[in-house]
Amino acid sequence: MNTFLKTIRGFTRRPASSLRRVGSSKFANLDKAVKIEEEWMPHYEKSVYYPVRIGDLFQNRYKVVSKLGYGANSTVWFCRDLGRQHNYVALKVCITSSVVNREVEIYKHIAARPKYGGEMFVRTMQDSFEIKGPAGIHQCLVQEPLLASLYELQHTLNPASLTEELLKESLKEIFAGLEFLHSGANVVHTDLQARNIMIACSDPTVFEEWEKAEQEEPSPRKVDGDRVVYQSRNFDLRNFLRGVGRCVIADLGTTRIGKQHDGFIQPEIYRAPEVMLCMPWGPPADIWNVGVMIWDLFEEGHLFSPGGDDRKLSNARMLGEMIALLGPPSQEFLHRDDETLIPDYSLEDCEIYLEGNNKALFMSFMRKMLQWEPEKRATALELLQDEWLNSPTRED
Results as ranks from 00 to 15, higher is better:
2 N>P: 15
4 F>Y: 13
4 F>L: 13
6 K>S: 02
6 K>Y: 00
7 T>D: 05
9 R>L: 11
12 T>P: 00
15 P>S: 14
16 A>H: 12
18 S>E: 13
18 S>N: 08
18 S>W: 05
20 R>C: 06
22 V>G: 07
22 V>S: 13
23 G>Q: 14
26 K>W: 14
28 A>P: 01
29 N>F: 04
32 K>W: 01
35 K>I: 01
38 E>F: 08
42 P>C: 11
43 H>E: 14
45 E>A: 12
46 K>S: 14
47 S>C: 08
48 V>N: 12
48 V>E: 07
49 Y>V: 09
53 R>Y: 05
55 G>F: 14
64 V>S: 05
70 Y>Q: 05
72 A>D: 06
74 S>F: 13
83 G>W: 10
84 R>A: 09
91 L>I: 12
94 C>E: 15
98 S>C: 03
102 R>K: 15
108 K>H: 11
111 A>E: 15
113 R>E: 14
115 K>W: 10
127 D>W: 07
130 E>V: 13
135 A>V: 02
136 G>P: 04
137 I>V: 15
142 V>T: 10
142 V>P: 09
142 V>A: 06
142 V>Y: 06
143 Q>H: 06
144 E>K: 12
149 S>R: 14
153 L>D: 05
158 N>Y: 02
161 S>P: 00
162 L>C: 00
164 E>D: 00
165 E>S: 07
165 E>N: 07
179 E>P: 02
180 F>M: 04
180 F>D: 02
181 L>I: 13
182 H>S: 00
183 S>P: 03
184 G>P: 08
188 V>K: 08
194 A>F: 02
203 D>E: 12
211 E>M: 11
213 A>M: 09
218 P>G: 06
220 P>Q: 06
228 V>K: 09
230 Y>H: 11
234 N>I: 08
244 V>K: 09
244 V>I: 14
246 R>T: 15
255 T>F: 10
255 T>L: 13
263 G>C: 03
265 I>N: 03
273 P>Y: 11
275 V>W: 08
277 L>H: 05
277 L>E: 00
281 W>D: 00
283 P>R: 08
283 P>Y: 07
288 W>K: 03
288 W>N: 01
288 W>M: 05
290 V>K: 01
293 M>K: 02
296 D>F: 09
296 D>N: 12
298 F>A: 14
299 E>L: 03
302 H>L: 06
306 P>V: 07
306 P>Q: 08
311 R>Y: 04
313 L>S: 03
315 N>G: 01
315 N>D: 05
321 E>N: 00
323 I>E: 10
324 A>F: 14
325 L>F: 11
327 G>P: 00
328 P>N: 00
333 F>Y: 10
336 R>H: 05
338 D>L: 12
341 L>Q: 13
346 S>L: 06
346 S>H: 09
346 S>T: 15
351 E>Y: 03
358 N>D: 12
362 F>W: 11
369 M>F: 06
374 P>H: 04
377 R>L: 04
378 A>W: 03
381 L>E: 14
388 W>F: 10
390 N>Y: 02
391 S>F: 04
392 P>N: 03
